[in-house]
Every structure is written in structure tokens, then in C-alpha cells.
Design a protein around this nucleic acid. Structure first.
Length: 326
DNA sequence: AAGAACCACAACCGCAGCTCT
DNA sequence: AAGAGCTGCGGTTGTGGTTCT
């Protein structure tokens, strides 16, 4: 396994990027595509290593990045997916349109993790730190189901990633075919302004080509997987075998989607985690807390923890009998 | 007003895995 | 099959801004 040489050699610059550097990188990629990251800095006139350029581009300069505060839906999705997937930020980012894994990771570490800790929930396992009272509620069984489901979901995501790669490859082939007579031929990422004029579903295709990680949401993904396959097949003449996996993913996504959008999440999970004030008062030792409130606080504590876990279980395991696994 | 402490986020580092030869 | 080159990923650190004392 080759390892990237360290950027320390040749006195390459490190640290924060200047607007001039950003401009150079942006201009170069708009003109030529990024091509090989390793050779890009020299060609672009930057005294940076390729890795640094790639990071700057994918986490900051890329035009399809949404910046700014995470909304409630996004926070909810992150917490739910983290309960399922753990610190697999790229996988989580797959389900958050226009957010980078780095941004999600930072947001988790600085905001969401602390919020869970305040609630007395282990941010790693998403279980209450003191299991005893909840075990009596029969939640340990659910925790086992959650763990089981997480393994299943992990396998599903791998299949999904494989499918995405295949789809991406097919699109790339399609793009190469379409642009073989054109001067601009990009390796990997292609900037919006340089994209060919797609005649079918341009938005989705751009996303496929542009993002190192998919940026489709649950509902988009559910709809777009078969649509893309049809598109590639019909427009290029490529015959694509329809794998059983596609149907499986499709049905799984439907299950996932209906669960996520279903009852309980918005009021329970979101209300609990994202409601803000009431939660902070209940769980933290913040200013408003008084000695007299502590017993009532405990009561809310367990009640809310139960809601929290229920919401995750509902998310991953709404009706075990319907699941292909159970 | 000034220094300390804290916070948020950009950027770096090193490893793992994939592709190509 | 094996090694080199490259990219992606996740953990960690550094830096600049804000709040507190």
C-alpha cells in the first residue's frame, strides 16, 4: 500500500488558505478540472501539496456545498444515522445533501455530542449511561435489536456505495462518450460550468459527477437509482443488467424513508433533542435548575431518554415483521 | 481594558483501500 | 502476485473569534 509522501518536503505551504490561493485553485479547476491532485498544485501555481488542495476544494470551495447552520431536519438525520453507523461520516454525509463529511463531523463534535452528553446519553452507543432504570422498561432488548439492525444497515450501505460507484462509472463513460470530441476532458470531478448540456435529469447527473460523496437524500435516492439506470441505458445504448440488489435497495429506502418521515420522529426525537430550552433545563445543571426540581428532573430524564431511544428504534425498526431481516 | 478561557471550524496527519502496472 | 501511486476517510490539531473574569 503506497503512502502519500509528506508535504513537508520542498517547503510547501501549510495552514489557512488565502483568498489568492482560493482564487487560483478555483480558476484552475474551472478551467481544467482537478485531474490528478498530485500534479495540480504545480500546474495551478500553488505552493501546496495536492492533498491540501483536494481538501480545500472538497470541504470549502466546491460550488455545490451548502454552508451555514444545520437545520432541524439535518440535525435529526445526523443523530439518527450516527446511532446506526457510528463515526462513518462519509456514509452519513451521503444522506445530507450538500454537506461535507468534515462539516458533519465538526458539527457532531462541537454541538450534537455535547447535547447527548447533557442528556445523559452516551454519544458513542446512544444508550443512557445508566442503563438500570431503562432496562426495566425492556429497552435492553431493543438495544440488541438496534445493534443487529446497525450491522444490517452497514451491509446495506456498502451495497449502496457499490451501486453508486457503478452508477458513477457509467455516467463517466457516458460523459466521455459525449465529450470525446470536445477539448475539455476532465478526470473525476467536473465543474458545473463545464458540464455538457444534459438532456435528461441534468441535476441528478451533475451531482453524481461532482460529488466525491453522493448528495442525494433518502427520497431522492429512492427515486433516482432506477431513473439513472434507465437514463444511462437509453441514451448510450449500454445494456444494463438490472440486479436484484437494486430492487432491494429501493424497497429498503422506502422502508427507511417511511420510517424517518413517519410518526414519532418529529414530535418525539426532534422535540426531545432539538427542542432546546426544555431539554437543556431538564438535563444540564444549568442556571435554571434548583434543588427542588431535581426529583422531577429525574422523572423527565428517564421519560425523555425512553422517547429518545424509542425514536431511534422507530427509525430503524418500525415493524420487524416487514423487515427482510426479521 | 486586558488577559484567560472557551468555542467553532478549517486544515493537517496518517492509515487503509483501490487502481494500475 | 506484488508493489507503487493516489485518493478517501476519520481522528486530531491549530487558529481565529468570542465570551468571561
Amino acid at each position: 500500500m503506497g503512502r502519500s509522501p509528506c508535504c513537508d518536503k520542498l517547503g510547501l505551504k501549510k495552514g489557512p488558505w488565502t483568498p489568492e490561493e482560493d482564487q487560483k485553485l478555483l480558476a484552475y479547476i474551472e478551467e481544467h478540472g482537478h485531474g490528478s491532485w498530485r500534479s495540480l498544485p504545480e500546474k495551478a501555481g500553488l505552493h501546496r501539496c495536492g492533498k491540501s488542495c483536494r481538501l480545500r476544494w472538497t470541504n470549502y470551495l466546491r460550488p455545490d456545498i451548502k454552508r451555514g447552520k444545520f437545520n432541524l431536519q439535518e440535525e435529526q438525520t445526523i443523530i439518527q444515522l450516527h446511532a446506526l453507523l457510528g463515526n462513518r461520516w462519509s456514509a452519513i454525509a451521503t444522506h445530507l445533501p450538500k454537506r461535507t463529511d468534515n462539516e458533519i463531523k465538526n458539527y457532531w463534535n462541537t454541538h450534537l455530542k455535547k447535547r447527548l452528553v447533557k442528556m445523559g446519553i452516551d454519544p458513542v452507543t446512544h444508550k443512557p449511561k445508566n442503563e438500570t432504570p431503562l432496562s426495566s422498561l425492556g429497552l435492553s432488548k431493543n438495544a440488541a435489536i438496534l445493534s443487529h439492525t446497525a450491522q444490517w444497515e452497514s451491509a446495506r450501505l456498502e451495497a449502496e456505495a457499490r451501486l453508486a460507484r457503478e452508477s458513477k462509472l457509467l455516467h463517466l463513460q457516458h460523459y466521455q462518450t459525449k465529450t470525446s470530441s470536445q477539448p475539455h476532458h476532465h478526470h473525476g470531478f467536473t465543474h458545473k460550468s463545464l458540464l455538457p448540456n444534459w438532456t435528461t435529469k441534468p441535476h441528478e447527473d451533475q451531482q453524481q459527477l461532482e460529488s466525491p460523496t453522493s448528495t442525494v437524500s433518502f427520497s431522492e435516492m429512492k427515486e433516482s437509482i432506477p431513473a439513472k439506470i434507465e437514463f444511462v441505458g437509453s441514451s448510450t445504448g449500454v445494456t444494463l443488467m438490472k440486479e436484484p440488489e437494486h430492487d432491494w435497495i429501493n424497497s429498503t429506502m422506502h422502508e427507511f424513508e417511511t420510517t424517518q418521515m413517519g410518526e414519532g420522529i418529529e414530535e418525539g426525537f426532534t422535540g426531545l433533542l432539538l427542542g432546546g430550552d426544555s431539554i437543556d433545563r431538564s438535563f444540564s445543571g444549568d442556571k435554571n435548575e434548583t434543588a427542588g426540581e431535581s426529583s422531577g428532573g429525574d422523572c423527565n430524564y428517564y421519560e425523555d431518554n425512553k422517547n429518545y431511544l424509542d425514536s431511534i428504534f422507530n427509525f430503524v425498526d418500525p415493524s420487524p415483521s416487514d423487515s427482510p431481516m426479521f
